[in-house]
Design a protein around this nucleic acid. Structure first.
Lengths: 192, 192
DNA sequence: CGTCTATTTGAATGTACTCAAAAGCGGTGG
DNA sequence: CCACCGCTTTTGAGTACATTCAAATAGACG
């Protein structure tokens, strides 16, 4: 049994004890060392992946070799390329552990099977996709109307504790700015 | 029967003639005059809405009264706040006709009913959400690594014909820039 | 035609980036 | 335990991209 997974599920669906067992039995625990990649461009993201411990980023590199961080996931979050998982088409992204981590994974096929036994899970994953969708829509809107500093302050509020845990350059890339500039923003906010 | 709706459905699912009838019968045709709103902030988006003719934007205004255009939809597209529709929660957006238009609409409840008769439709709408999701994810990434001019050129390619059809300030807002600047970009691209 | 709105232009400004270099920091091996 | 290495963060100076504000021009519609 995986209490943190169940807790996350319980936010959207109510499972009976039997269903909880079925669900947990379907997932496998996997350890991931720092800098290990769960996904590389060209690969299909085969496993729905719940972070039990540690921290991941999903990112790509542009032609100049600069990273764009699309997603940051810590304990209690799902990580990975949702689109590649749903369509089982190759991804364009890296999914990389930036701390040593533990994840709970279920293979795409096995999830389909689980849906037939625990249909509520289908609802859960549908809600997950909806939320991911709204997250990106909001990110588009806030990148249109907010300055880098405003986006950084929003980041601090919505993702408390992350700044002291992950490198500055990762946050900068997530916010769509250069590390040098985030450094200046921090200095400015500290009041010199 | 609505041929353009059926054509759009056929891109992802194959319907029998009987199913096609069922589906078309479930939709209602509605005329919309220029500047009319199908949705305003605070309202729930009750109808899945397919554009048969004309053009719509989905947008909000920030505290300074500046619009942010989140979506532009023409014939053959679906329009509206997917999140509000799926969750039946109030929206934060306007959905406005920028040309007089005709849409095909199905109420949220009636769609649920249609799902039981034509289960393939559930698949169709799931794919629609996935595509909307990937669209926004790509927009986040391209706003991180591209200049305004590059985004504009991408827009021209992915949405051919739209530039001569909708106002410059709408495109500018969609791209996240000011109209004056888009005007300069166009001038620059025309070669003086 | 006149009015209203949309677009263009100019000048000044601000926000964020580039490049280069210095400083800080953590780990590793002598 | 300290010196050194590699990587991250900070700092400085110059620049590019995009905005602001104001005014002029162009287009659309009645």
């Amino acid at each position: 049994m995986y209490p943190n997974l169940l807790e996350s599920l319980s936010k959207h669906i109510a499972l009976t004890p039997e269903e909880q067992e079925l669900v947990c039995a379907a997932f496998k625990l996997r350890s991931v060392v720092k800098k290990e990649c769960l996904l590389r461009p060209g690969q299909v993201f085969h496993h729905a992946t719940f972070v039990r411990k540690g921290c991941f980023t999903m990112h790509t590199f542009d032609k100049n070799g600069k990273a764009s961080v699309v997603q940051i996931a810590v304990e209690g979050w799902w990580v990975g390329d949702i689109y590649s998982f749903l369509t089982q088409k190759p991804s364009e992204y890296f999914v990389e552990a930036i701390e040593s981590a533990e994840v709970l994974q279920i293979h795409h096929e096995k999830l389909e099977e689980l849906y037939t036994r625990v249909p509520k899970m289908e609802r859960y994953f549908r809600i997950l996709v909806q939320n991911a969708y709204i997250t990106f829509q909001n990110r588009v809107v806030s990148s249109m109307r907010q300055t880098a500093q405003e986006r950084y302050m929003e980041f601090q509020q919505t993702r408390p504790g992350l700044e002291q845990r992950i490198p500055l350059y990762t946050i900068a890339s997530y916010l769509g700015i250069r590390p040098e500039f985030l450094s200046r923003i921090r200095k400015r906010m500290a009041g010199r």
